[in-house]
Each structure stands twice: as C-alpha cells, then as structure tokens.
Write a protein that binds this DNA or RNA. Structure first.
Length: 469
DNA sequence: CCGAACTTTGG
DNA sequence: CAAAGTTCG
C-alpha cells in the first residue's frame, strides 16, 4: 500500500490534529516528516531563540511518535525539493498538512500544491475560525477588535476536539532522516540558551500540563494577568505558536467547568489571536508596512545608542529594564511589560517600531508573525486601534500600579533589590543616604534615566501632532 | 448618514 | 474628564 506523507508545520502535536487523524483514518502507512527550510521561515531568524524551542519540540514529537510505533523524519533544505525527493523515495500517494495562514506560507502552499505530482491536502486547526469567514455587515474585514469579538462569539460554536491517533501504520521502508542533535549544536551561539531550559518544557506534554497549571489560576485571570510579579498569565503563547496545543483544546478546557470573568477574559485573549491573524491576512505586508498610511513618513530617530540601551535593559527606568532583561534571560516577557517597553521605545525614544518588533522576534520564544506585529503596530498607534493618539504609557505609574511591591523589578534588576518600595520605580528620587544604604550608585551600578519622562512625552505628542497635519 | 463605541490611556 | 478620528451597525 502506498504511504501518505504527513508534513508537520506549526502543528507539533498528536491531540486534536485534524489533518493527522484524517491521514490515519485512511488506514494507509504514514510517514511523519518535518522539513526545516531556513529560506521559508521568514519569522524564524537564524539563531533566533524560537529555534531553540522548535528543535526541542521536534525531539519531543519524535518521542511521542515512537510510542505509536512510528517516528519523525527530519530533513533540512528547500521544502519543495526535499518533499519531491521523499515522495520519489517512498512512492507516497499524497501529502497531508495543517493549514498555515498568510504571507509567505500561503504562497508557498500554492506553489507546492501545483508543483507536486500528488495531492497536497490542507486541513484546518491552527485557528478557531477561518480568517475570511467573519465579515462586517458591509462585507469588509474587521478593523476593530470588539465588533470582531462579538461577531466571533455569535458565529462560533467551538466543536469538540478530536483524539490523538492510537497507532500509526509504518511504511515498508523509511526515508532517510537527520540527527536533531546536529541541528541543535549549530545554533548554540546565543548565550541565553544555557539557562533557558529551566523555565520551559517544549513539546505537547509540556503544553498540556501548562494548560492544567493555568486552569488552577484562571479564575483570577481578569485581574492577575496584569501583574508581572505574579504567575497569573497562561504562558501558552509559545505552545500555541508551534501548535503543540490547539486553540480549540485551550478553549474547551477553560470554558468547560464554569463561566466567570477570569475564564471569559482568557477566551477573549484567544480571540485576539484570531483577530491578529485576520489582520495579517488583510495586510500581508503588515510586518514592514504601517496599517495607517499616515505613519509612512514618520520622522523616526536615527540614533542607535538608545535602541541598544533599551535592548540590554539599561534605560534607567526600572520597569522597562526589568522587562527587557526578562526577555534576554527567559525568552519571554509579561504582556503588560511588553506594552510598556514597546511604548517606551517608540514614544520616549522615537525609535521605529519595526526595530523593536525585530528585536522581539529574534528574542521571544513565542514570536509570532501575527500577534507580534499587530501588537507593535497597536502600541505605535499605526495599527488596528480606534483611539491611539495620546496613549503614552508612563513607565513609573505603570510600575506602581502593576508591580506594587517592586518584586518584579527586584527579580530582574537585582542591583536595585535593596531599595525600599517607595523608590523602587524611581530610584533617581531617592535621597543620597537611602541610595548609599541600598548599595545603589546611580550612573555607576544602575543608569540614570536616558530620557526625562515628561519631556519625552511632550516631544512624542508634538511629533504626532505634526504628522497629523 | 448618524450615533455609539473604541483592550490595556494620562494628569 | 479630556482628546479625537475611524469603524461598525
């Protein structure tokens, strides 16, 4: 019997994998394949942190497949060439895969479906709703979240998940595979790799247990999610990005036992993910082009030094620096702090949002072309947002509000850890005696603010007013 | 075409 | 409570 090639992309899971279960249901031998095509991964930059995740996740997937009497074939190179090569070597009769969305991936899939001699079959699963499905009453795509959200809730009944396959039939002969360990050693050039494993469990098992951990605290999600000093967020973004868990699994699990504000706040966040993909499909060049054309000629600062200080977490604003250092160490940043740090780079330093988005993409394990880009544009004020003009986050008040005891600061900016709560968010106001006693030497052990908040805020408002004219 | 509404706002 | 333009029904 001719085998089917199952091509894994961003669906590195067995549970609720519709494409996989359809392939298995044919009763034919299955050849699970992952092709690492560097030219194709526009949002997985070489040496990026999410590559660390990808390789670990693939190793986990291989382990799971082996329990089903199968294994994962790993190959590198041009996806089309490698795929043709495997089809020829195995005499496969079809390729099954889970749909990817937008930009490069869609065009690639179109090319593949035409150039392969066998059917190239696409299935849903990455999103809860197909991007082209939800439209406004006038037939256009949504540009504002809330109406989109309401329409989503009315239109969608989230179906039950499909089980993982019990067994995969092996082909008579397996195609060649590569050793994942040799892929790993190639990207060890980022210092963060050394410790990052303690924070995370890549793979489907890690994803499902993460969901259970979150389920224990989700009832307070509507309040705690804003607190970077607590573990109140789901931390599921990276698992969702790689498809180690389906959004449907998350939805059904969190919605199930009872409804409350915490649970619906999380479901709403899942719809934000849908909304971001909707926008990416609407604006395929969203990663480089502002959605609002007004911003095409924004006079961004040419200075590189402030950008570097921001990247290293040396701006002199404790909350900003804590966030940027959390990103460096953990490959992840709390969402509230992502907004504050992004706003600081754009509004206080007048740096092009694309440079910030690039840095996030290269350093975030959960870097996602839709969510990352849509959010940066939202903060910059050029994205899908109805009232962006005067929103300039105050890094000091944000700190006081959302990290009231300064625990988040103390954790990620240890040189400030002895400062009393009163000054932890604005060390430059502390009297000399307090600084001395806390072993803080401004300008030496911790920087002075690289820009004055009040001045920077007014400057940003002035520039924005200017381009509006 | 009109009115209501707009994720996370600042002072 | 201001600020202000666009989107959606």
């Amino acid at each position: 019997m001719k085998p089917i090639i199952f091509l894994f992309y961003r669906d590195l899971r067995l549970l609720d994998n519709i494409a996989l279960i359809r392939a298995v249901e044919t009763g034919k031998p299955i050849i699970p394949v992952y092709i690492h095509d560097l030219s194709a991964s526009s949002y997985l930059l070489e040496g990026s942190v999410s590559e660390w995740w990808l390789f670990n996740s693939l190793r986990e997937l291989d382990k799971s497949l082996r329990k089903l009497n199968s294994k994962l074939i790993l190959r590198r190179g041009n996806r089309e060439k490698v795929l043709k090569n495997i089809i020829k070597a195995t005499d496969a009769e079809a390729v099954y895969f889970s749909s990817r969305y937008c930009g490069f991936e869609n065009t690639e899939d179109e090319v593949l479906s035409k150039s392969l001699d066998v059917p190239y079959r696409r299935f849903k699963g990455y999103l809860l709703s197909e991007p082209e499905k939800l439209r406004t009453k006038s037939g256009t795509a949504y540009k504002v979240f809330t109406p989109f959200y309401k329409a989503f809730l009315e239109a969608q009944e989230i179906a039950e998940i499909v089980p993982a396959p019990k067994m995969l039939v092996s082909p008579r002969n397996w195609p060649e595979t590569e050793d994942i360990e040799s892929w790993n050693s190639k990207t060890r050039n980022i210092d963060i790799y050394d410790g990052i494993g303690v924070f995370w469990s890549p793979g489907e098992i890690g994803a499902l247990s993460r969901l259970e951990i979150f389920n224990d605290v989700v009832d307070n999600y509507n309040i705690d999610r804003d607190r970077p000093d607590l573990d109140g967020t789901s931390m599921l973004s990276v698992h969702l990005h790689f498809g180690e868990i389906s959004p449907r699994t998350c939805w059904r699990r969190i919605q199930k036992p009872h409804q409350n504000e915490g649970r619906s706040a999380f479901l709403r966040e899942l719809v934000w993910r849908e909304f971001s993909y909707n926008l990416l499909c609407q604006y395929p060049d969203m990663e480089t082009q502002p959605m609002q054309k007004l911003f095409l000629h924004f006079p961004w600062s040419e200075k590189t030094e402030p950008l570097e200080l921001w990247k290293q977490g040396m701006t002199g604003y404790p909350l900003v620096d804590a966030g940027m250092r959390q990103l460096l160490k953990k490959g992840w940043m709390h969402n509230r702090v992502r907004m504050v740090t992004a706003s600081f780079l754009i509004k206080h330093l007048l740096t092009d949002w694309r440079l910030g988005a690039d840095w996030f993409r290269s350093r975030l394990i959960d870097a996602d072309p839709a969510s990352n880009t849509a959010s940066w544009q939202w903060v910059a004020g050029c994205g899908a947002d109805a009232s962006p003009f005067f929103r300039i986050f105050n890094p000091i008040t944000q700190g006081k509000r959302f990290d009231p005891k300064g625990n988040y600061i103390r954790n990620w900016v240890p040189e400030l850890k002895n400062l009393p709560n009163k000054y932890i968010h604005e060390p430059w106001l502390a009297p000399e005696s307090v600084l001395d006693k806390s072993d803080v030497f401004l300008g030496v052990s911790y920087p002075h603010p690289i820009v004055d908040h009040k001045f920077a805020r007014q400057r940003a408002l002035d520039v924005l007013a200017k381009i509006k004219r």
